[in-house]
Design a protein around this nucleic acid. Sequence first.
RNA 1: GCGGGUGUGGCGGAAUGGUAGACGCCGGGGACUUAAAAUCCCCUGAGCUUUGCUCGUGCGGGUUCGAGUCCCGCCACCCGCACCA
Length: 849
Amino acid sequence: MTDTRFDPSQADGRWQRAWEEGGTFTADSNSEKPKSYILEMFPYPSGRIHMGHVRNYTMGDVLARYKKMRGFEVLHPMGWDAFGMPAENAAMEKKVHPGAWTRSNIEGMKAQLKRIGFALDWTREFATCDPDYYGHEQALFLDMYEAGLVYRRSSEVNWDPVDMTVLANEQVIDGKGWRSGAEVEKRKLDQWFLKITDFAEDLLDGLGELEDWPDKVRLMQENWIGKSTGLEFAFDLSNGEKLPVYTTRPDTIFGASFCAIAADHPIAQGLADKPEVSAFIEECKRGGTTAAELETAEKLGFDTGITARHPFTGAAMPVFIANFVLMDYGTGAVMGVPGHDQRDFEFATKYDLPITRVVARDISEADAPMGDEAEAGDGVIVNSEFLDGKSVEEAKADVIARAEGGGWGEGTTVWRLRDWGISRQRYWGTPIPIIHSPDHGPVPVPRDQLPVELPEDIDFDEPGNPLERHPTWKHTTCPISGKPALRETDTLDTFANSSWYFLRFASQPADAPFDPEEIAKWLPVQHYIGGVEHAILHLLYARFWTRALAHIGKFDVKEPFAALFTQGMVTHENYFRATPIKNVERIDQPIMKLERFSPDEIEKVGDKAILKKDGKPVDIGRVLKMSKSMRNVVDPDNIIDQYGADAVRWFMLSDSPPERDLPWSQDGIEGCGRFVQRLWRLFGELDPGAGGEDKALARKAHQAIVAVAEDIEALSFNKAVARIYELTGATEKAAPSESRNFAITTLMHLVSPMMPHLAEEVWSRAGQDGLVADAPWPTHDPAMLVEDEVTIAIQHKGKLRDTITAPKGAAKEDLEALALASEKVQRSLDGAEVRKVIVVPDRLVNIVT
RNA sequence: GCGGGUGUGGCGGAAUGGUAGACGCCGGGGACUUAAAAUCCCCUGAGCUUUGCUCGUGCGGGUUCGAGUCCCGCCACCCGCACCA
């Protein structure tokens, strides 16, 4: 090798073509090798690849390449989560077709991904907006429909009257539509739902087996599913009606002193003809829903004048309409037990209702006064007739048994999880394959008519759903009667598209969504990597679809992702300048004008940032997630132009542990670029003529083979990187020898998953056959892992005084003698009597005086 | 409010209860060069009375021969959920 510098601008593309032409990363499902499916969450084609993608896919790429070196047949696919609102927004703003916009983004982003040299099987690429893909999705929807997992009901939605569309909760900001700014209305619409609640128990239980998922994500899903058990029973009301309530604390029933119902409860609505009642209901709806507002919101109630009869004591308890009771949880009504529920306590205090103790630490404390808050903890039941003296758990069981025996209530389980409303009044999504027949109601589209394709000729000139106002698209005939009928014009929530794409990657027959035999070969995904922002929705929906399809008998896989890894964000400092502008009202409090500057406009000098165009300093703000609004985005393409793909990949893996945020820095990427060149020079020093053994270096190389493998398998890429730096440093310093050549070729292998272009280049220049990507992971000699000398720490009273070198496995007595012989130790002992000596073999000696 | 996480040099971070700060970045000094770039070498937690000593992993206690690591009690920041009965 004579080139003094590695030139990524010509090498990167050359090796990318070599991998592509050789089909190096094409997965063969008929291979005899063990299978490994490595998957990163596929991107939404928003326009450009950003650093977050680069980090995400680099991690998966290292794993995929490593697994291949370890003898696995690896499936590492890529595709596009291509349906969604941004395409429709672009259509409205830029007058382009959502499909054209999406396709063009995909093309650009695919080219960007290829430049980074990812080991992807592009033969399996698809976009969810391909009619082929969403046609199979429609078939799966019909499978679920036939299995009774899909139903239609009227549901309240957020309706934007200007854009004429339904908004997700996240799109409603301060009660206004995020785009139109119009006051959002609540509207009842017929919506399609998937019965995810049928699988609530399964989805909850399944979490227990997902040992290689982060605890955090499992907990979030557990809370989201929100299982609770208790008693549902009905109070007899003074007006002759029944009031069903749900409680998790039936043991405290003797402490109940009132009932409370939600503002939109039927009984409350029934009283709404009284102006004071309707005024109160309005007041309840006005309350904000942010954390701070709820924190300070006062408990408000309206006494209906109705009373409820206590099932045991027969006491008449007032029934209030209350602002803290939610209609969509439980029965929308509660029994108020102020002594042992904080909300009830606050409410009772405000409206001067009795607060009775029915749980105490001990039976003797039955008459202990209540403090200034409710006691929700465990204890012994008191003041409760036949329950007195029982534990909370015993009393719960007793009350439930009596309610069931008496036929006035039953033990139930209540879930926080709601069925998944999947109807969206949008164009750019999977059309729901249903036909509304005048005679037969909703009828599935016959299978041979799938896919129901989106029409191309649509316009976004008016607000609302283009499918709804398309002149011909929705007009069809009833599959049963043949009479004119209307297509469903709603499309599926985009989360449906990402709920089964990993199955289609594994298997892509033309006539079915997937082939069960192929699914069995590849699933579950061995490593699934993505952002924690998908901890609940996407990951829960994907788990649900997999279970639902397994339930229908499509395959045997229940959990799609054996291991989940949630990576941190890529962050960057931001640059700004705040200049005061004249404030006519308060000269001492000027209004500040804030200007932000992108990293391209800045030059860093030491720890100062200088604006290039005026040569003056700007302020450096906090390190934050890269975002357009902060103008702190660094474009991967520019970086690759300057430093090559390998330097960027190396940066993504260095320093920060992968689950934490990674602060981007110019100094850091320059350091990575330098290291690529440092390795290049070192690899050029391979000396076939050199002989002789360098045992210390050879040992380091063998240790690195083991350690780097362990680190990659634990996804501790930052540690693997540090090991490679160490071996590199040691190898550079060593004199030529056979061992040094071994260390150099070992390094070629160890860095190849991380810097594949450099590795291929030096591999080929070293005259090796084939591609390093196809080469196996180097083998280590176990005998070479063991050191024959170790450094022993000598402590006196737990503090380090000296270190000595001793043969590995030296006897305790010998170590003790060596320690006591140390001059430094003797000086520290200063003649004191040695009371005890603790010897940890091969580690340390601690002398206690 | 509930749940979870994090806290170690100027910075990112290492460290099965056993030598705290591996490795990288920044910074300082030097070599090479007419010069620069590139490269290489050395130093780089703080303090002190500098053969060495003392202090030091958010704060306060504890267990231990020995604690960044284990236990108890706090503080700060970050994330998620939320009037869920």
